[in-house]
Design a protein around this nucleic acid. Structure first.
Lengths: 226, 226
DNA sequence: AACCACCCATGACACTTGTCATGGCGGGTT
DNA sequence: AACCCGCCATGACAAGTGTCATGGGTGGTT
């Protein structure tokens, strides 16, 4: 009952002529978004564009690569927050096996660290859900033209921040300290001595400029250092 | 260019006959959701329903009541996470000035505490964004018929939990402890002695069964005790 | 009046956490 | 070989945090 709910419903009736590009064959889009209602709403939104066709939908990050191989999309539209595999990792995986497929990240949080990781994963576009709706179709057409689309404010913020100063191990320990876990629990989770955990956390706190491990975790998350 | 972007675009051509109800006049819907792209995508989704018309969109909670007075909707569809005023408070406000308007909460997180607060605010429907897309239109029609629509799992979870055991002051202090704040900072924020803050936090930790204030905060948030 | 719940505060104590110095191990650089 | 960096660990100390007992004040209930 919703539009384009099948994997291949065919192009819109008549010779498709998109608002900007005049290609006969519509742009084939894979959409990955975990919340079903939002996913189908985005499909509805794109169904109004004659030159764009959603050929596949997935609700988990770990289904992106396989579904792309099967449905051969031109553009993959990926949310970041997804079960199974986050959108950024899924982007890297997809870019490795299908370098020709353009990738657009569509996310709620415009964190500079996300953007940096996205650029390292071969992503062509990065837009936030706060943007007006027409930005979505517009971005899809632009990346198909070989352009890169990045929110200007976000790009500036990402450039002003350097890369993560945390060593891999520090990162692990800090990440394991989420949800108010005890030093004991963290030590058990990462298989380390409690003293070592405290040392790592201490240096995380130093490097983030925080006063707690809780605050350090929050700061590191915002900066995309996890 | 997006469907139903104007406040009053009129009913669909021909005598409207909805899939379930056979009313001539379409159901007038007010949509409140802060993320512009999602909001317009939901509008696109609802535009496929002949018996439903989105007559107003807002991106802030504090605009709900005023816009409802101006546009006279039958149903208000409210997200919870919004700037200005959260959706639950906005629901209470709206229910007070327009008790006839049905209210549906559409949210990302299905927390039992949210549901309880929603019920106290005169809400008729409560659905999560994980639901399939057709649930949205279906829910709108059901609440128009005077029915209540609540996710069964959520209802069970909310019933199994009692109300908040936290006293108002405990709630304040715990809420002020977010983001890894120090006891000093919390005390300054709520204008209390440091010792008193520790006492309140201690009882919060007791009542939540947590081992930290960090974990206590997380638990209280999940249960909707804030 | 007696009682209870909540509010606020203080002080003492024990536990957890953050910091620092120190040292051994492995790998890569100069 | 000397050096630096990251990894892991220990021990000691200081600071922060959680717990408990205690007490005074307010307002509502029985």
């Amino acid at each position: 009952m919703t539009p384009a709910s099948g994997p291949a419903s065919g192009p819109a009736s008549g010779p498709a002529s998109g608002p900007t590009s005049a290609s006969v064959r519509p742009i084939r889009v894979l959409l990955a978004e975990d919340q079903a209602m939002i996913r189908e709403a985005l499909v509805a939104l794109l169904s109004f564009e004659d030159d764009i066709e959603v050929v596949a939908q997935v609700g988990r990050g770990d289904e992106v690569a396989m579904t792309a191989s099967r449905t051969d999309p031109d553009v993959a539209l990926l949310d970041i927050e997804m079960p199974g595999l986050d959108g950024l990792t899924a982007a890297g995986e997809l870019h490795k096996i299908r370098p020709g497929t353009k990738i657009v990240i569509l996310t709620t949080f415009g964190r500079p660290g996300y953007l940096r990781r996205a650029m390292e994963s071969g992503v062509s576009g990065f837009i936030v859900k706060d943007s007006p709706a027409d930005k979505l179709a517009h971005t899809i057409r632009q990346v198909m033209n070989g352009q890169r689309v990045i929110d200007p404010d976000l790009a500036a913020a990402a450039l002003s921040e350097g890369g993560s100063p945390l060593t891999p191990r520090e990162r692990d320990v800090l990440a394991a300290s989420a949800d108010g876990k005890t030093i004991q629990q963290i030590a058990a989770a990462v298989c380390l001595s409690e003293g070592t955990v405290r040392n790592y956390l201490s240096s995380c706190i130093q490097k983030t400029g925080a006063r707690n491990r809780t605050e350090a975790l929050r700061i590191a998350e915002e900066r995309g250092w996890l």
